[in-house]
Design a protein around this nucleic acid. Structure first.
Lengths: 230, 230
DNA sequence: GATAGTCAAAATATCGAAAATTTCAACGCC
DNA sequence: GGCGTTGAAATTTTCGATATTTTGACTATC
């Protein structure tokens, strides 16, 4: 019952995960033959998967010269984060205004799942296994998605999703989810409360700070680690 | 010297044009064999082209059941247009604030090209050949792109481009570019002047009105013509 | 010594046929 | 009469081989 109906789906998911994990570094040349072997598929499904990843801006291709993992320019973190903050605050305020009980329930459930997880996590600074980070990432994603899910604007929701994904790539490449002194959990709690109390301005401000603060940490981590950016 | 480096590019462009033109109607099932023949390519390039169109939200696919032209829900015109208005006004105000002489030159050139064309066009209400509409569309697109090209935010620029494309699809499906009593040319002139005079608020308001008014006309045209929406 | 041209090796792009899946209508059963 | 089953036709998906293009080094020439 896997969600991979076709081999192209399988390859798509696998490659996508590898890129987001940073297993396939930014800017890296993708050797088709090797990838086909790794994914255990032929050329056609692989090529289809790559074409779809191109649509997600995770892969770039050039003429007849092959495919590369999309670069991750250091100087675009702030750009992406600012635009993302704008879209998410817009969507959040619309959700607070229009969101009904179904929205509230989604937010509560997503928050609960994230909250329980964060409280059981090792304190910041400790080493964390990759599996834990993936599980946290999934819940964090769900929480953000739930918050903006009541806007009544499918278009806006799609864009939020798209930008979340781009930010996530930066975060994961910098191998950091919440490092530093920040208590991300507390920020989530504050956002959750403000949203359900329908305090639009406060909630939006909190979300914006949340996003921009994360961006700042990522930029710091990347500039320190001199990670590949092209 | 065509920009089609590969057959997949060729199929991509052709299909894209056919979908935007409305030649391939919204929701329509795509028969791979027939398309391959039309595009004069094999299955592999065709499949790659479809995967890329999926990334552009112009095509949808399901499991192992094939491909369809993406639906064009009537009730999403307003949604798309509102989000687009938000993004374009944001990008325009940033461009006015930060745009240098290069931005001004791009705006002027694009406006000139569009303006000359619009002044030579048959008056509203007249029948127009498709080739004329395509030429107008290209210039209109360039003008809007130039306006937002000085924001200094590649991310925002990409999103504007993306939403412009989606709006364009609605416009062309409704077989109308500027019908009715509106004088779109005058609106363009007003936007151009306000932008170059650095009147941020005025320019943004004009752009917003421009986009929303177009949306209203499209919705009207579509609801009258009972065009396919799924 | 540097530059242009040539050629082989490597990688990508494409095709056409075979395999797997879905669809749909006819049939029998409850 | 309605409903699940069966089987053939249509369609999608995949593979392996072939054709095309790029790369990079080697040679000859200026």
């Amino acid at each position: 019952m896997s969600p991979d109906k076709t081999l192209a789906d399988k390859a798509y998911r696998k490659l996508r995960a590898e890129i987001l994990d940073g297993h396939l570094g930014a800017g890296q040349k993708l050797k088709l033959e090797a990838l086909a072997k790794d994914c255990a598929v032929g050329m056609s499904p692989l090529r289809e998967a790559l074409a779809r990843l191109q649509g997600d801006h995770l892969v770039v291709s050039e003429g007849q010269r092959g495919f590369w993992v999309a670069p991750l320019p250091l100087d675009e973190i702030d750009d992406v984060s600012r635009v993302r903050a704008m879209l998410e605050t817009e969507a959040l305020s619309a959700s607070i205004a229009k969101g009904g009980s179904a929205w509230e329930r989604r937010v509560k459930e997503a928050f609960e799942r994230l909250s329980q997880f964060e409280e059981g996590m090792p304190s910041p600074g400790t080493e964390r296994p990759a599996a834990l980070l993936n599980a946290w990432e999934e819940r964090n994603h769900a929480f953000h998605a739930a918050l903006v899910s009541g806007s009544g604007s499918p278009c806006l929701t799609r864009l939020c999703e798209q930008l979340y994904q781009q930010s996530e790539r930066y975060r994961r490449v910098s191998r950091m989810v919440s490092g530093g002194r920040r208590n991300v959990h507390e920020e989530h709690v504050a956002i959750f409360r403000a949203a359900l109390e329908r305090q639009t301005l406060k909630a939006c401000r909190l979300v914006e700070d949340h996003i921009l603060r994360t961006a700042e940490q990522i930029r710091l981590a990347m500039s320190l680690n001199e990670l590949p950016d092209a």
